Amino acid sequence: MAAFLAGTGARAADDPLGAHRWAHRIVVISAPATDDSRLLAQRAALAALPDALRARDLVVLEAVGAEAPARRLRESLKLPPDTFRVVLVGKDGEAKRIAAEPLPVEALFSTIDAMPMRRDEAKRRGEIGR
């Protein structure tokens, strides 16, 4: 379900979220280990709603463990390496919501759906009421 950060070159290293700016909203799930129960719960909650993620131009990135890509992603959002976090990043590249526990999808979607850009997108796409 998760899109994993990939890329080479200085730009990807300097701004691991840059490739998504103005194209996607991003949910970053940060966890110290792959067996973290909060990571597994957040993955499952998001994986259950692929159409809703697509409708909101939402991609999921994970920063799990201590490998270099995970460290770079955490550093770009100033997240601690040894704790669980979920971060919603808007299309403008700014963090819109940060949670220390799994974020219910209803709360995630209501945050996104309240954004002026998302309301405009929903009107243009005929998605009002989703």
Rank of each mutant, 00 (worst) to 15 (best):
H20W: 12
L61S: 01
V60H: 08
L79K: 06
F109P: 02
L108G: 07
L88A: 04
D113F: 01
L58I: 12
V28E: 00
L103P: 07
E106D: 15
V28R: 00
A48E: 06
R38Y: 06
L46Y: 07
L73A: 05
A99D: 09
S37L: 10
K96Q: 04
A47T: 08
K123E: 05
L77I: 10
L58E: 09
A122F: 05
L73V: 09
E121M: 14
S110R: 15
F84L: 11
T34L: 12
A95M: 00
E62W: 07
V64F: 10
R54I: 06
G90A: 06
F84S: 00
M115P: 05
G93Y: 00
L40S: 07
I128K: 04
H24S: 12
A52N: 03
T83R: 15
E62P: 03
R119T: 05
L46A: 05
A33E: 12
R74F: 04
H24C: 13
A52S: 10
M117T: 00
V105G: 09
V27T: 04
L108V: 09
T34Q: 09
T83D: 14
G90R: 00
P50N: 01
H20T: 04
R130I: 10
A70G: 04
V86N: 00
L108R: 05
R38I: 05
R54P: 04
L61R: 05
L103M: 15
L53S: 00
V60T: 06
A41P: 12
R25L: 06
V89G: 09
E106H: 11
A122R: 08
D51H: 10
R124G: 11
H24A: 10
A41R: 15
A45V: 03
L77V: 12
M115L: 14
R119I: 06
A63V: 13
A63H: 08
V87Q: 02
R72N: 12
S76D: 11
I112L: 15
L49C: 07
A68D: 12
A68T: 14
A52F: 02
M117H: 03
M115D: 14
M117E: 02
M115C: 06
E62R: 06
P102A: 01
A33T: 15
R125P: 07
I128Y: 00
T83C: 13
R118C: 07
V28A: 04
Q42E: 10
R130C: 05
A107N: 13
M117P: 04
L58Q: 11
W22L: 01
R125V: 08
L61G: 01
A55P: 02
V87R: 00
A66E: 15
D120W: 02
V89P: 11
L79T: 03
V86M: 03
A41F: 10
L79C: 10
Q42F: 01
I112P: 01
R74C: 04
V59Y: 02
R85F: 14
I128Q: 07
L46M: 08
V59L: 12
K96M: 05
L79D: 02
A44V: 08
K123R: 15
R85Y: 14
T34R: 14
R124D: 08
R56I: 06
L103N: 11
A44M: 07
E62H: 07
A31M: 02
L40K: 13
I128W: 04
G65E: 02
T111N: 07
D36L: 03
L61T: 03
P50T: 01
D113V: 04
T83F: 10
S76F: 03
D113H: 11
R85L: 10
I29W: 05
L108N: 03
D113M: 14
E94Y: 02
P104M: 12
K96C: 01
W22I: 00
